[in-house]
Amino acid sequence: MDNLDLKNLMVFDEIYRTASISRAADNLDLGQSAVSMILTKFRKHYGDPLFVRTSEGMQPTRLADDIVGPMRQAMNILKATLEHRAHFDAATSTRMFGLCMTDIGQRIVMPRLLEHLRRAAPGVRIDLSYTSEHTARQLESGEIDLAIGFLAQLDAGYFQQKLFDDRFVCIVNRKHPRLRGPAISLDQFQAESHLIVATQGTGHVVVEQTLERNHVHRKVGLRIPNFLGVVSNIASTEYLAIVPERFARIIAEGNQIKVMELPFPVPKYRVMQHWHERYARDPGVVWLRNTIAELLRE
């Protein structure tokens, strides 16, 4: 039987329940001809009359008695599926969310988020990964739910929301022998050795563009793969490093690190959270997005 839908199942069940084509039509707000046409399709499909006129109305045949149970089960499943709406209760959920961010993001975002989860969503779990060239594909596939950082080039189909603005500053050892003031001069900047972090998902492309545009040169003394080594290397050497201000203020507390102004203006950049439109209405992802946005509101 082609094109079987919920209406067909409801017609069969209503005839079985009322023993009447006319009452079935009235109860379903259908014309008698429409109900009769659907019954004819069932009869043709099964090769059985299914319902026979008697003194007590349209009574089911044995085959109709046999299939009414599975029919009703199928009807209930279809109804439940059509009426299904996704639901998320943070207080009781044990869902594992995939988050993608840099190690800077982890220092800025995660302490606030984990404290909030402890109080409001104790069963919710987080699976953290680093921003990479695979981030866009992982968002599209659902492998990760949100990516936080500076992702400059995403194709159509991705949404983003600003979390906060940040700017770049310079950090040095608090006891650096040559850099004493609140700011560093351009000559000092170009004379000193620099620590460079080779990472993705941050706004450092803004720094590179500024240096190139202003013909500023820097002498790279150390290149490291992530920001985890910034604190120890800056605190124990005479290198300079350019880092986001929020990160700089965090690591300067309790460490032998001083924050200094750069000798040239660098545009601010926006830190965003990104997700794919496939999961834009997922209530769990909506809750997580709203939670992070609220926690990081300036």
Score class of each variant (00 low, 15 high):
Q73Y: 11
Q73V: 08
A74E: 05
A74T: 06
A74N: 06
A74G: 09
A74P: 00
N76K: 09
I77L: 13
I77S: 10
I77A: 13
I77R: 09
K79Q: 06
T81M: 12
T81R: 12
L82Q: 07
L82N: 08
L82P: 07
L82T: 09
L82V: 09
E83H: 04
E83Q: 03
R85N: 00
R85H: 00
H87E: 09
F88Y: 03
D89S: 11
A90N: 05
A90T: 07
A91C: 10
A91Q: 12
T92H: 04
T94H: 13
T94C: 09
R95H: 01
R95Q: 02
R95V: 01
M96N: 08
M96W: 11
M96R: 08
F97D: 03
F97R: 02
F97Q: 01
G98W: 02
L99D: 00
L99E: 01
C100F: 02
C100K: 08
M101R: 12
T102R: 09
D103R: 15
I104D: 14
G105L: 04
G105F: 00
R107M: 08
M110C: 14
M110Q: 13
P111D: 04
P111E: 08
L114Y: 11
H116V: 09
L117K: 02
L117G: 00
L117E: 02
R118D: 02
R118F: 10
R118T: 07
R119Q: 11
R119K: 14
A120Q: 08
A121C: 02
G123N: 07
V124A: 03
R125M: 14
I126K: 04
I126H: 03
D127L: 15
D127V: 10
L128N: 02
L128Q: 04
L128I: 15
S129K: 13
Y130P: 13
S132G: 03
E133I: 15
H134S: 14
T135H: 01
A136D: 03
A136T: 04
R137I: 15
R137W: 03
R137M: 10
L139W: 02
L139I: 01
S141L: 14
S141N: 11
G142L: 03
E143C: 15
I144M: 01
I144A: 04
L146M: 04
A147C: 14
G149Y: 07
F150W: 14
F150N: 07
F150E: 11
L151I: 15
A152G: 10
A152H: 09
A152D: 07
Q153R: 15
Q153D: 14
D155N: 13
G157C: 04
G157F: 02
G157A: 06
Y158M: 05
Y158G: 03
Y158N: 04
Q160Y: 14
